[in-house]
Design a protein around this nucleic acid. Structure first.
Lengths: 117, 117
DNA sequence: TTCATATTTCAAGGGATATTGAAATAAAGC
DNA sequence: GCTTTATTTCAATATCCCTTGAAATATGAA
């Protein structure tokens, strides 16, 4: 992941309404939900929601597909995984023993050579 | 974690220079590094660095302690862990089977009842 | 075609944020 | 006390971002 991608994701999430939208979509799961439902859930005017969904989409945090008159938005979990990897890259100079014990074991045993904290 | 805390963390990281600073400190590990070294590594003017470190500190992403004339900054990994938990809270309505298989197993087997994706 | 529904686009405003250099503070050494 | 080093504070400028409502687009139904 490039730095510009990470900044885009972080900027997209660093806003009250967008954070709410994204978490709502995370909760909704892969099926996603139509823009209208999001607007109703969060009491957002349609134009504001459209603006925010656009930013989330540009950052790669959500996908869209049309279903009749509705636009179905869904969270892209992959984007968040990549972001976390980017943030923890080269953690503690690659020396897990430097990480505090409690923190070091929080991530469990992944099958990929993920940076261990 | 409250929403305002999450937004603070995300806003703090959603900036080129601050993202560089944080990742440098993640790499440095618990020992941290003095502000001067950060400034030298990233070619940032001292006043700019001070501004950015302050924002990271207010967000709880770094800690500071004085050592002689130097200020030693270190990353607070806990903040990131809490943020990730906040983002994935109630994921897929708590039904792991809704998460895509590949993504669902990415996080390994944590000992906490962490939301599985 | 005409109407109703769902969402996006547009323009304008007010507010927050990053950058810079100079000046101020804080500690260490002579 | 004076000087040097390390970092922060301050003020000014420029830039970017969010919100709002009205108008426009797209689809489905009568």
């Amino acid at each position: 992941m490039k730095k510009t991608d990470a900044v885009a994701i972080l900027s997209a999430l660093a806003q009250d309404n967008r954070l709410d939208v994204f978490r709502l979509l995370v909760e909704a799961g892969p099926a996603g939900m139509p823009a209208g439902h999001i607007a109703a859930s969060l009491r957002l005017p349609p134009s504001a929601l459209s603006f925010h969904l656009d930013r989330l989409r540009e950052a790669g945090l959500v996908t869209v597909c049309r279903n009749g008159r509705s636009m179905i938005y869904a969270a892209r979990f992959e984007a968040m995984d990549l972001l976390v990897s980017y943030l923890t890259d080269h953690c503690c100079q690659g020396r897990p023993e430097l990480c505090k014990p409690k923190t070091a074991q929080r991530r469990g045993a992944g099958q990929k050579p993920e940076p261990v904290r």
